[in-house]
């Protein structure tokens, strides 16, 4: 029962996040919305796994959590540098 309520809340938030991703207005709003959508997906898979008595779904949630983060950073890097292989060396500090 409570799992269903949590699932409903997560679904509503996912819809709101998708709306934000469609509306934008900037590309960073969209990336943020997609990242948030990914976090919600992880929670959704976890809750659904419990709702249907299949906690093995948590493995998928775990992998999705990692892919979501790497995907966000990859898209940001692609946006910013135009390619994925670029290595940023400007942050290296000489006092360390």
């Amino acid at each position: 029962m409570m799992f269903a309520a949590a699932m409903l809340a997560i679904l509503i938030t996912m819809a709101l996040t998708l709306a934000r991703a469609v509306l934008g207005p900037t590309v960073y709003d969209r990336i943020m919305a997609v990242n948030l959508f990914g976090t919600k997906t992880v929670l959704f898979i976890a809750v659904v796994g419990f709702l249907f008595g299949r906690p093995e779904f948590l493995d998928i949630a775990l992998v999705y959590a990692l892919i979501n983060f790497i995907g966000t950073v990859a898209v940001l890097k692609l946006m910013h540098y135009g390619e994925l292989g670029w290595v940023d060396t400007s942050w290296e500090r000489d006092d360390l």
């Binding site: 509503i12 938030t13 709101l16 996040t17 934000r20 948030l36 919600k40």
Partner: peptide, 10 residues
């Protein structure tokens, strides 16, 4: 909190 943050996006 999840829903409130969704509302916060708007």
């Amino acid at each position: 909190f999840t829903i409130i943050s969704g509302i916060g996006l708007f």
